[in-house]
Design a protein around this nucleic acid. Structure first.
Length: 514
DNA sequence: TACGGAATTT
DNA sequence: AAATTCCGTA
């Protein structure tokens, strides 16, 4: 592997830089191209961010198709074909359609962002990193370039086993690389080196007339998001350096300690942050027209995520580690989050525990090693059913917890359920760090899966009590894992774990025998 | 307008 | 693997 030494801190694979004409190189992928267009102001009449985070509208389908055709040397390209390609992204969870809005799609930035910045330091101990890596590496064979093994030792050691050791390898998980130079460039905030793309686009730009070269991260500073108000910021002494002053990208940390972890396994890989904390927390500029990998934005975004994770007792794996972004640990608010009036409350609902493969789908081949609900082997839904939104969370490894489910739609974010059964653990001053284990705080006592099942059952119960309007939502039975009745008697485990490793090990064990 | 199967291409 | 092409369906 040739590491571009010219870029300290970046060990991108060679192919990431190869122009498409280069033999053996990977051609630009459509979503890269879309992002590229979205980034350029010249094309805002053609395609632009609009609406929610990650949502974009193709204002001129024919033109976008034409540009794509130019890019790919496919003169016959049209929107029909292009849209077919976009639809293929549904199953890969790179995109989905914004229903009811013409030509409107939505990026799953949880994939794009997090896979590009898998090491953002959410303030948790690095001990959980292996788990995160596992999640990220479910994509199968780690490419030559991928796993930067930090040798510094201060952070973590590479997981003792490869993900395929931990997770049952699924053929479909051996997904193609989805990382493009564009994404990386976006990540770096670099525009100057987008040679191939910009070259290809330059023709169009000329055709359209000169446009200003838009810096990737221009724009006004983000206004303080209201969410920040709900975070109590605790400095983390463990991280000596403040926010790393990387110029454009969190990965630009000059330490070189952590080369970027660029999983090539984006599409089918369940990750730990598949839901979005809030539409307003997208790392986008307030104008909503630019996705931003700005560290500050991402920090906010991830902070909110962390808070959500904490609020909802999600898995510690839902915390992320990035070397250069320190997201303060959230604290469980004494009261439910007070949200500004103009801001929709979180809607959040746990998905039911993973089921066996749906029966309704095509019959499974007998030889298939996947999906047999009786096998007890962690399975990943290979063919996501893209239809029902609430139904879509099938693509997950059983060893993952619910927090890793895809809950990217606003519907899944509900106001926090009544905290009756989960009194906020008082965090003694000076012990904030122990709150790191927020996600695993009770996992200490209750296995995660059990915990989430209970949580889900509780949600179901509350739902049944509260709103019948949701009654049509399928309550799926699960023969494989009988639903547990709500357990009000569960003793809240107050003892906050200081040893995440234990939880980690538990998780590993769970993952094996599940 | 959108979806997704199927065959084919790169 | 990631489209591209074509097309039936809703």
């Amino acid at each position: 592997m040739k590491t571009p030494a010219a870029e300290p801190g970046f060990a991108f694979p060679d192919w990431a830089y190869k122009p498409e004409s280069s033999p053996g190189s990977r051609q630009i992928q459509l979503w890269h191209f879309i992002l590229e267009l979205l980034r350029k102001e010249e094309y805002h009449d053609v395609i632009a961010w609009q609406g929610d985070y990650g949502e974009f509208v193709i204002k001129d389908p024919d033109e976008v198709a034409r540009l794509w055709g130019v890019r790919k040397c496919k003169p016959q390209m049209n929107y029909d074909k292009l849209s077919r390609a976009l639809r293929y992204y549904y199953n890969k969870r790179i995109l989905h359609k914004t229903k009811g809005k013409r030509f409107t799609y939505k990026f799953n930035f949880n994939k794009l962002v997090l896979v590009n910045y898998p090491f953002i330091d959410m303030g948790m101990a690095v001990r959980t990193l292996p788990l995160i890596l596992i999640v990220f590496f479910t994509g199968g064979p780690v490419p030559q370039s991928a796993p930067p093994v930090p040798s510094g030792g201060t952070h973590f050691r590479f997981p003792p086993c490869t993900p395929s050791d931990v997770l049952s390898p699924n053929e479909e998980l051996r997904s193609p690389t989805l990382f493009s130079s564009v994404a990386r460039r976006l990540a770096r905030g670099s525009v100057s080196d987008c040679s191939d793309v910009e070259e290809s686009l330059s023709e169009e730009q000329h055709r359209r007339g000169p446009g200003p070269d838009i810096p990737a991260f221009r724009g006004p500073p983000l206004p303080r998001l209201s969410h920040e108000g709900i975070f109590r910021v605790y400095p983390r002494p463990r991280v000596p350096e403040p926010l790393s002053p990387f110029p454009v990208s969190p990965m630009g940390a000059p330490t070189g300690l952590l080369p970027p972890q660029l999983s090539p396994a984006l599409p089918m890989t369940p990750n730990h942050m598949n839901y979005t904390p809030s539409p307003t927390l997208s790392p986008m500029y307030p104008g909503g027209s630019h996705f931003s990998f700005n560290p500050e934005d991402m920090k906010r975004y991830l902070q909110a995520h962390t808070q959500s994770v904490y609020n909802y007792h999600l898995s510690p794996r839902a915390f992320l580690h990035y070397p250069s972004i320190v997201v303060p640990q959230p604290q469980r608010p004494e009261k439910p989050l007070h949200l500004p009036p103009d801001e929709p409350p979180f809607k959040f609902k746990l998905q039911p525990p993973p089921l066996g493969k749906k029966q309704r789908d095509r019959p499974l081949e007998p030889g298939s090693s996947t999906s047999s609900s009786s096998s007890g082997v962690p399975q990943i839904k290979v063919e996501p059913i893209s239809d029902a939104e609430e139904d879509e969370e099938e693509l997950m490894v059983e060893v993952t917890d619910i927090s890793e489910e895809e809950e990217e739609d606003e519907e899944v974010f509900k106001a926090p359920t009544a905290p009756e059964q989960r009194p906020p653990p008082p965090i003694p001053p000076g012990r904030e760090e122990e709150a790191l284990g927020a996600g695993s705080e009770s996992g200490r006592c209750i296995p995660l899966k059990l915990r989430f099942k209970r949580r889900w059952s509780e949600d179901q119960r509350l739902e049944a009590e509260g709103g019948a309007e949701e009654s049509d939502k399928k309550v799926r039975s699960n023969q494989e894992e009988p639903k547990l009745p709500p357990q009000p008697g569960v003793t809240p485990c107050r003892r906050v774990s200081t040893d995440l490793q234990r939880a980690t090990e538990e998780l590993s064990l769970e993952s094996r025998d599940s």
